[in-house]
Design a protein around this nucleic acid. Sequence first.
DNA 1: TTAGCTGCAAAAAGTTTGCAGTTCC
DNA 2: GGAACTGCAAACTTTTTGCAGCTAA
Lengths: 144, 144
Amino acid sequence: MKEKAHKINFPALLRNTGLKATPGRVSLLKLLSKERKPLTVEAIKKKAGGKIDTVTLYRALEDFADVGIVRRVDFEHSHAHYEIVAGRKHHHHIICKKCEKVEDVDVCEFEGVEKSVLGQTRNFSSIMNHSLEFFGICNQCVNK
Amino acid sequence: MKEKAHKINFPALLRNTGLKATPGRVSLLKLLSKERKPLTVEAIKKKAGGKIDTVTLYRALEDFADVGIVRRVDFEHSHAHYEIVAGRKHHHHIICKKCEKVEDVDVCEFEGVEKSVLGQTRNFSSIMNHSLEFFGICNQCVNK
DNA sequence: TTAGCTGCAAAAAGTTTGCAGTTCC
DNA sequence: GGAACTGCAAACTTTTTGCAGCTAA
């Protein structure tokens, strides 16, 4: 079963979540959907040919993350990454501590784990999402 | 089995990893060890009575993280947190998306998972560490 | 028409770099 | 003595805020 994120109707997706389907936001989603990996704000800007205003980009990404179309990912490097969620299977990442190379990884089901986590706390009643990242040094960076 | 992080010989620990046991670094480790939760650089500074220089703090934390005495944790809020590792059991966190409240959580073994992850990639040969954080809205913030 | 989106300017927040002086071992 | 650590100044990067004009629905 191949993922066909490019077939998603982004204007409809945006409207369904209460956001407006502006040309800028639709192309941003297309870009993220095509790249299929976590990108920094600067990287997105570059990929878009520098045409997007940085502030507008931050605001769009925040809005998207709020409604779950996009997710923010942190790799212990002081800048956030954003990745499309819509049209993609749930997955995690392995990241090179040196060059920041990122690869997707699949990990077993997490439903049981979330239940167990909720069983341990009295301050939380539900879990909205989780992040799971693996860190190492990639084979290219090891040889240096 | 209670954790007794306060009994750790920090000067020795530092020297064992090739770092110098300066008074500043030893008290920083004591502070982190006492707090037992992820703190931002600003929070550490405040707890220390503002006596630590910010730059020195960043450099010490980075050095500590490099040798594994401390770990950096990211909570999808644009500032890093640092938590002591030495003397503590491996654990993860659940974080409130609104107030950034943090609670420790224990999760089942990860050895099998790491093996499975390494089986999926050709670019990495080992995993040095992983991050696993759960996000939700805490009960106090829900009622707002 | 109006709530939401955009872009510019500016500021705030977080982090890094360079360097001269000090301290640990 | 020498490598590591510290503190200050300065720079740089990342993210946020405010506001006026524009646009999708």
